[in-house]
Nucleic acid binder design. Structure first.
Ligand SMILES: [Mn+2]
Ligand SMILES: [Mn+2]
Ligand SMILES: [Zn+2]
Ligand SMILES: [Zn+2]
Lengths: 138, 138
DNA sequence: AGTAATGTGCAACAAAGTTGCAAATTATTT
DNA sequence: AAATAATTTGCAACTTTGTTGCACATTACT
């Protein structure tokens, strides 16, 4: 019994609506991370820009998706596969951006390496974004 | 004989103008990275928004400053201290963002750890952004 | 089915970034 | 040191991206 998108919404105390179902479905079907613009294009039904913004924000708040920092400072989102919850993300994995096909992957099994900070600096969170060529493009 | 901002501009074949001198000076005096908005505020003389955009882009192109990816996807810039040149950045250092004072540091002496990518993925560049509390705020 | 709670779309707005072009500044040549 | 050529600046106009308030629609609850 695979978890449906409705299950996920229910588990997070979110009303089950068309837009949330469609957008969450998109994430489940997508190989890589999605930007706001991708969702506007890919979703068969047409949702208002504002609805998409709010849906994404809600999903981030609930720990359903996480944002990914990129070198060109575009905003990307991907499903949380770790056990994230409202207010507590712990997506401690490396992200990979393919220079060729532009897909952004969550490398869920590549853990964040530890970093030796100078005296006086305390680490709380570490983001690692690697770019290069992905396995489909090599 | 310290290198003046004019020297840096000259070395990069850039005309020595008021805005470029002021903005470059700002970077030299600043402890941390600067956003476009910081420059608009901090520069004593008032420059047009467009001039600031273009100056920053020129400096990035010439390898004088580099951009820093951030979790909240704001665009930050900092001086390149490594031997970067036009078209060839190699700022292989860790960046640190203080959650308390919001300063972003280039940790020039903390080298990027290596990451074990899955089969088929080729690494070209790695960005590491650590957040936490800096030495001034602890 | 009826009511309360929540979410959506629209409109209007704000912020961020881009482009073309004339005027001003800087560099180069005489 | 002028004159000229090359580059840069500021303005205006525009695009793109993101935000907010509110009436209406949908979903959840009794
Ligand atoms: Mn991820
Ligand atoms: Mn740096
Ligand atoms: Zn690829
Ligand atoms: Zn600090």
């Amino acid at each position: 019994m695979a978890t449906t998108v409705a299950d996920i919404l229910k588990a997070n105390n979110l009303s089950i609506t068309d837009s949330r179902k469609s957008i969450l479905e998109l994430f489940k079907l997508s190989k890589g991370a999605l930007a706001h613009a991708d969702i506007e294009k890919k979703s068969s039904a047409q949702f208002d820009r504002v609805t998409i913004y709010r849906t994404l924000q809600t999903f981030v708040d609930k720990g359903i998706i996480h944002t990914i920092p990129t070198a060109d400072n575009s905003v990307l989102y991907a499903l949380c596969k770790d056990d994230c919850s409202a207010g507590h993300h712990h997506d401690n994995h490396v992200h990979f951006i393919c220079d060729s096909c532009d897909t952004t992957y969550c490398l869920d099994h590549v853990t964040i390496p530890s970093v030796n900070l100078p005296e006086g600096f305390t680490q709380k969170q570490t983001d690692v974004v690697v770019s290069g060529v992905c396995k489909n493009c090599e």
